[in-house]
Design a binder for these strands. Structure first.
Length: 224
DNA sequence: TCATTAAGCGTTG
DNA sequence: CAACGCTTAATGA
């Protein structure tokens, strides 16, 4: 079982819980490692847990009717997701892929539902997160029409630095251009070009194997 | 036809 | 050694 300190580290929401709720959450969590390129779950699975990323990088994707893989979002360490499938008690609507060696935390369904019924703090967290996700979804619909690669890439990056979804306010992330491409659904060359455009506009700084966000607001709106 | 991509490979930090 | 960036052949709009 994970330690209280560990839970505080991997789940920002746990810091808002009272003692009883915190203990319950701690007992309901199990961790598991996934190596690069493997599937954490497939579309259609009944994965009865709420998922947190302890370390690494996860891609949420789905397959379009024509059989093409479509990337929906990236989740980095500290992110929690999958509440929709639990609350609606339905199978996963998407695939989860580990883009690099990653460690996941799973909060079992019964514990999730208990927290949902009993913890005000937990619900507050969920509402805030839902609200952000709704914003993301609207942006997704918008950029479906906006085909330029730099804009799509900029939004993907902005999501990874959403201050509500990730409470640590770090502006830097170790993320290769290949990984950014995989998350954005853009080829490596196009990713490189797009990143250079964004860097020239002063929105971010490129480093070897990583990026630093210089202007999150402008990044989130790039291409409007 | 023209643009974009995956694959391979040389370079670089 | 992994990330980067370039070349090239294939793909497809």
């Amino acid at each position: 079982m994970i330690t209280p300190e560990h839970l505080r580290q991997i789940a920002s929401w746990s810091n808002d819980l009272n003692e009883q709720e915190f203990e319950r959450a701690r007992r309901g969590i199990a961790e598991k490692d996934f190596s690069k390129g493997t599937y954490i779950s497939h579309r259609g699975d009944r994965l009865d847990s709420w998922n947190g990323v302890v370390s690494g990088l996860i891609k949420v994707s789905t397959v379009s009717r024509t059989g093409k893989a479509v990337s929906l979002a990236g989740v980095r360490a500290g992110g929690w997701f999958g509440e929709g499938s639990i609350l609606k008690n339905e199978p996963r609507l998407y695939d989860l892929v580990a883009l690099r060696d990653s460690r996941m935390a799973f909060l079992d369904r019964a514990t999730f539902l208990w927290l949902f019924e009993n913890s005000v703090a937990f619900n507050r967290f969920l509402v805030r997160q839902f609200n952000e996700r709704l914003g993301q979804f609207i942006a997704l619909v918008e950029y479906d029409r906006m085909l330029e690669a730099p804009g799509r890439l900029a939004r993907t990056l902005a999501w990874l630095f959403n201050p509500v979804l990730y409470r640590d306010s770090s502006r830097h992330l170790e993320l290769s251009q290949e990984e950014i491409g995989l998350l954005s659904g853009i080829s490596r060359q196009a990713t490189n070009k797009s990143l250079q455009i964004l860097e020239a506009k002063g929105l971010l700084r490129l480093e070897r194997g990583g990026i630093t966000i210089l202007h999150l607001e402008k990044l989130a709106r790039f291409g409007d």
